[in-house]
Structure formats: structure tokens, C-alpha cells
Amino acid sequence: MTGFALRRTLQSVVVLLGVSVAVFALVHLVDGDPVRLALGTRFDQATYDALRERSGLDQPLAVQYAQWISSAVTGDLGVSFRSGDPVTVLILERLPATLSLAGASILVALLIALPLGTVSALRPRSLLDGLGTVVSQVGISVPEFWMGIMLILLFAGTLGWFPASGYVPLSEDPAGWARSLVLPAVTTGLVSGSVLTRFTRSSVLEALGAEHVRTARAKGLGPRAVLNWHVLRNALLPLVTVTGVQLAYLLSGVVVVEIVFAWPGLGQLALQAVQARDYPVLQGAVLLFAFVFLLLNLVVDLLYTKLDPRISA
């Protein structure tokens, strides 16, 4: 068990190092001169030199990478080309919005997926199962941003129930925060929920067919006890992994949804950095995303060994 944890953690660290090299190379090797790109066409030599020096870009690449990664470890991701603010501060400012959205989305997704997937599996080929299959199939095929636009059209426009966009910090106005969360969270939650519904259904179906379920029934257990302890308990174990991966995706992959809802999260920050050619911010954000993604995957894997007695042996 500890051997596995150690190996798995080490593997993640290696991959993360590779990621950092890739992020660094992406900006420095392919393009050559981020400063020139950042400044655009109109700049004078003095500004250029100043920015270059400030960013340490006059050093050899290997040195630059070493400096960048060693300060990154201490939480210093450099300074924004555009605003001059530390990248770490910019990221931390955006974190609450992203966390709120990801958390609420996974909640919505699970609230849809667990009941719908379970009931579909318990009554295969029923009307509800058919409906669930169609809905989840369509759900994974809908572009999230279009779903967002449609929800805005209906619930913000026609019905006027929720704000069309914008984020209200929890500390300012909890009710407003919740209202501002509804549409974006439902948007991403529906899509993630579709993925999870399909998974829940197949997982529960598989668990239902297991022979130990027959043993449990032969023991004289009631249907509820059989379902909870001998079907769901087994079926939901792998769901932990998939939910973790979905959460990782939600934390890092909802760039476009953030744009639709003018949501001041990390995705928006990254996209703005791209548009402004603010490479330190882009580098920092991408590195952070990859870090979170790897970390969550690692946590899920380690958690799974705790949850499934067969592995933790």
C-alpha cells in the first residue's frame, strides 16, 4: 500500500516536471521571443530591454527554466507583463469563483447522475431508462457554452429568474452568490452529470449481476439492504474515481463556460492572458491547472486504495 502510494506520487511528480518543461518550452522555444510578442509592433528598444531584463529573458534558457521552476515551487510565478501584478496574486483572486463553480457543478452532476443512473440500472429498458439514456447521450454531445447560452435565453431572458451573467462573491452577498451560481453550475453540471449518469448506470448494472448479490438475497436481506450494501456500495466505488476526474476537469476545463457567463475564474484569466499575450500569467495558470489536475487524479487513486479493500491489502 505505502509502496503503491509512493510510486504513484513519484510518478505524478515526474509528470509534473515534464509538464513544467512543456509549459516553459511552449512559450520560449516555439516562439523565441515572448517579449516581442507581448509588446506587439509598437515598442522602443528601451522598453523592450527593460521588460526582457525584468523577466530574466536575457539569461540562457536553462537558467531561465531553473529560476522559473524554483520560484514556482515557492509560490512565485513571476509578474504579469500587462499589469505588473504577481501572477500568484492574480490566480488567487480568481480562485474563489472557480472553486464555487466547480463545487456547485459537481453537486448538480451527482444529484442528477446518482438517482437517474441507479434507477435506470434497476429498471433496464423501462421508459425512465430509455429517457435517461437519450438525455445523457444528448447531454454529452451538447457544447457546454451553447447549453449556457440556451439557459440564459430561457431562464435569464424569457423567465428572468436568474442573472444572465456575473459572479457575486460569497462574502459580499450569500444569496446573490447562490443565485449567480445557478445557471453556470447547471450548465456544466448537466454535461458532467450526463457522463456520470452513463457511468453510474453501467456500474450499477454490473454490480447487480454479481453473484454475491444472490448470496445476500439468499440470506433473507430486504431489497433495501441488498441495494445499499451489496449493489450500491460496490457500484459506487469506481464512481469515486470518475467523479474525481470530472472534478479535475471542472476545475480546469470550463474556460468557455466562464466566458459565456462572464465568470471571473481561472479559465477567463487564462484566456485573457492569451489575448493579451501575457505569457507569465498564461504559464502560471496552465502550470497550476496541470498541477491541480494531476493532484486530483493522484488523490482519487490513493483514496480508491483506501476505499476498496481488495487493493489496500
Binding site: E211, H212, R214, T215, A216, H230, N234, D308, R310
Partner: peptide
Amino acid sequence: GMVFQDPMTSLNPVLT
């Protein structure tokens, strides 16, 4: 009481 064929699969792997 009933005893089944395969003790590998007739017990629930995740319960003690």
C-alpha cells in the same frame, strides 16, 4: 440456508 458454487464471487468483496 444456501451455499453457492464459487466462494470467490459469492461473497461481497468490499464487506468484511
